[in-house]
């Protein structure tokens, strides 16, 4: 990862507004995500957390008001694991559709070890559990060189030990000058300032 100047803007949102099904989820939302910042999106079910994250990632391009700009391609981890059952964990990562053969075998092994999948590297993924699928996907956090991470409910289906390991990783990334946006209903336990963005009434604190 390239060390970036803390404070450099990685993504910016101006006057963002979104309505779904005739209901305004949020409007005139403006903020910038800078290097070294950790953001937590909060809000009840249906508050628009995932929608906002998809807009930030660039997956949603229409149907909202306002401007979104990104400095680079973010790492997006969504609800779906993007894990192919026919591939082993190792193949899923080395042949991942976003990236392409850039990871050495040892890197992948290390990453899988970090997410607690040591010994499962070559098991076909259809033999793994839902939580293990999520872990295979989250191993990308240990491989990716993207500075901006957009994580949608990353702790779903992960056990307590895995959650604290992940939070440590998120904290480490922010400390190294990355930026992370997390949607989660769980409080984050990191020694870092967490910017809270609550979508119930769209308040930034």
């Amino acid at each position: 990862m390239t060390d970036s100047a803390v404070g450099e803007s990685l993504a910016e949102v101006k006057d963002l507004g979104l309505a779904r099904g005739g209901r305004v989820l949020f409007e005139s939302l403006s903020f910038a995500i800078r290097a070294g910042e950790l953001w937590q999106l909060e809000g009840g079910n249906g508050a628009g957390k995932t929608s906002l994250l998809r807009i930030l990632a660039g997956l949603s391009r229409y149907g909202f008001d306002g401007l979104v700009s990104r400095a680079e391609v973010p790492l997006y981890v969504g609800h779906q694991a993007a894990v192919k059952g026919l591939f082993s964990a190792r193949e899923n990562l080395s042949w991942h559709v976003s990236g392409g053969c850039v990871f050495a075998d040892e890197q992948i092994e290390q990453a899988l070890q970090r997410v607690g999948l040591c010994g499962f590297e070559d098991t076909p993924s259809h033999a793994l559990s839902a939580g293990q699928h999520r872990r295979v996907n989250l191993a990308r956090l240990f491989l990716s060189e993207a500075r901006l991470w957009l994580l949608d409910e990353p702790f779903t289906a992960i056990d307590a030990a895995g959650v604290s390991e992940l939070q440590e990783r998120i904290g480490g990334h922010v400390a190294r000058g990355g930026a992370v946006v997390v949607t989660s209903h769980q409080p984050l336990h990191v020694d870092h300032t967490v910017h809270h963005l609550s979508l119930d009434g769209a308040r930034i604190s």
Partner: peptide, 16 residues
């Protein structure tokens, strides 16, 4: 199948 398991989203975000 890529749409169903979310790989397609990742493909769209990929740098290539």
């Amino acid at each position: 199948s890529d749409f169903d398991d979310g790989s397609l989203e990742q493909l769209l975000l990929a740098p290539q």
